[in-house]
Structures are given as C-alpha cells and as structure tokens.
C-alpha cells in the first residue's frame, strides 16, 4: 500500500514540532530553516498551514532535472534527491509549481521531502493529527472535490482527531 502525507491545516496549532522533527531526522540538528516541511502563519485569520511536497506522480522537478538526480522511489512513491548526483543547478526549484524544492547554499544542492524513506517524522511528531501518514487514496480527494466545488459547499462535518502512535509515550514506572 502506498501512503502519503495528509496535511490538514485546520488541525494545525503552529507548534512547529514537525519542522523540528524533520530537521533533526534529516540533518541531525533542530533547525527549522533546514526542515523540508514548513508551517506558514496567517496572522489575520489566526491560522496555520503545514506544507511540503505532495510527491506528484509526473513530478516536475524530476522531469526538469538535467542530470537524473531526482528519482522515483518505488518503495514509498516519493521523489528523492540523490545528493551525489545533484550539481545544484536549481532548475527543479523553479520547475516545481508548488515551490517545495529548495536550494541550500551551504551544501550547493537542493533538498525536498522524501517521506523519511517511508516513516515520516513530521507525522510522528505532530501532536494534533494535522499531519498524518495515510493510505494514498485518503489524502485529499474530498478536499480537492470540495475545493473544486467551493461556493456550493454544504453543511460542515466535524473531523474527529486521529489517535496517533506517537502520542503513546512509554515511561519507566516510578
């Protein structure tokens, strides 16, 4: 079963745990600037939106890469940057119309979400279920349909919070 990150902005509280987890898992440091997932703030509405690569099927970044440094990972469905092949030409950063490939001046290479190889830490770190790693069929069809039909949207329905393994902390018994 292929899985994908499901992002639900309405559940995001802007705690930034995902950015911390992402940068720590991928870079070994707690540094939101090195996170592949970003939480954007909307001051006027008082809301937040976690945002990262959707691993689109005909990935623009992958097709635009001139040196075959972005490849399809058949195990996870993600499009992964191969650091040893990336020359840092940045064509993928302008080709991706979602803006989810970033160039890093310190490494001279680009970075993007690779779903942590099938175990995304942002989802494990999210305390409110705004980021979940779910069956690919459940990621956003309803959302896309609702968006496409917006204006005629019908009554609201409450999305129950999802129980998450990451929230079951093991503590040594006193």
């Amino acid at each position: 079963m292929l899985r994908a990150l499901k992002l639900e902005p309405e559940k995001c509280t802007g705690c930034m745990q995902c950015e911390m987890a992402c940068s720590y898992e991928n870079e070994g440091v707690f540094n939101p600037a090195l996170s592949r997932i970003k939480v954007f703030e909307f001051h006027e509405q008082g809301s937040f939106a976690p945002y990262t690569c959707t691993q689109c099927e005909e990935a623009w970044c992958m097709h635009a890469c001139p040196v075959e440094a972005i490849v399809f990972n058949p195990a996870t469905g993600s499009k992964d940057v191969l650091d040893d092949l990336c020359v840092g030409c940045k064509v993928c950063t302008i080709a991706c119309p979602f803006g989810t490939v970033n160039y890093r001046a310190d490494t001279g290479k680009v970075m993007k979400c690779d779903l942590c190889g099938g175990d995304p830490w942002c989802a494990k770190a999210c305390p409110t279920g705004a980021i979940t790693y779910v069956d690919i069929a459940d990621t956003g069809l309803a959302r896309m349909r609702a968006w496409a039909q917006r204006g005629e949207a019908t009554s609201a329905r409450f999305n129950a919070p999802v129980a998450k393994d990451a929230q079951n902390f093991d503590r040594a018994k006193a």
């Binding site: 902005p9 703030e41 509405q45 959302r143 609201a156 329905r157």
Partner: peptide, 19 residues
C-alpha cells in the same frame, strides 16, 4: 508569496472547505 499561494490555491485556514 507562499502565504498568497497557499491561500489562493489551497483550502487553508480554520475548517476551510473540507470539514
């Protein structure tokens, strides 16, 4: 820019268009 992009292309914000 990204806020503008997210707000105009995706349902963002409280209970936006989905629930």
């Amino acid at each position: 820019l990204v806020e503008a992009y997210l707000s105009t292309t995706m349902p963002v914000g409280h209970n936006a268009y989905v629930i």
